[in-house]
Simulated scan of single mutants.
Amino acid sequence: MGGPHSVGIVGLGVISRQYLDLFAASSSVRVAAVADLDSERAAQVAAAVPGARALSVNELMADPEVETVLNLTVPAAHADIAHAAIAAGKSVHGEKPLALHVADGRAILDAASAAGVRVTSAPDTVLGTGIQTARRLVDDGVIGRPMAASATWVSPGHELWHPAPGFYYAPGGGPLFDMGPYYLTSLVHLLGPIVAVTGAARRARAERTIATGPRAGERIEVEVDTHVSGLLEHAGGAVSTIVTSFDAVATTSPPIEVHGDRGSLVVPDPNMFDGEVRLNELGDDGWRAVLASAGYEGSGRGIGLIDAVAAGGPGRASGALALHVLDAMESLLRSSAEGRRVTLDTAVERPPLVPLTPAAQWSR
Rank of each mutant, 00 (worst) to 15 (best):
A33V: 08
P64Y: 14
L279K: 00
E65I: 14
T244G: 03
E218L: 12
L356Y: 00
A320W: 08
T209C: 13
L231K: 04
G236P: 08
A248I: 09
V224G: 00
H189P: 05
G94T: 07
M1D: 02
Y183D: 03
A204E: 14
G236M: 09
A82F: 03
A79Y: 03
I306P: 02
R136I: 15
V102S: 02
F167Q: 12
R203D: 12
S150D: 15
L55H: 00
L265T: 02
D80Y: 03
W362H: 11
E330D: 13
D225H: 06
I210P: 00
N271G: 07
F167C: 11
T120R: 02
G302N: 01
V249Q: 06
G172I: 10
G236D: 06
A46V: 04
T198F: 07
T73I: 12
L37Q: 03
G157C: 13
E59G: 12
S28K: 14
A46H: 02
E59A: 12
N271E: 11
A115T: 03
P214A: 12
E276F: 08
Q44R: 13
W161S: 05
V222G: 06
A47E: 06
P358V: 10
S16P: 03
N271W: 09
A310S: 14
Y168G: 06
F23T: 03
A35M: 14
L321E: 10
E159G: 00
E65C: 12
S293L: 11
G295P: 02
E276D: 06
A360L: 11
R118K: 15
W287Y: 00
V119C: 07
G144D: 07
A151W: 04
D80C: 14
S245A: 13
L98S: 06
D269G: 05
I242V: 14
G3N: 00
A360M: 12
G173N: 15
A317L: 13
G130L: 10
S363R: 11
A79H: 11
G300L: 11
H101E: 13
A107M: 12
E257M: 09
S186R: 03
P270T: 13
G166V: 09
H189G: 06
N280Y: 10
T226L: 07
Y19G: 08
S28L: 15
M147W: 09
T185R: 11
S91I: 09
A201Y: 01
L98A: 07
G180D: 06
E338Y: 07
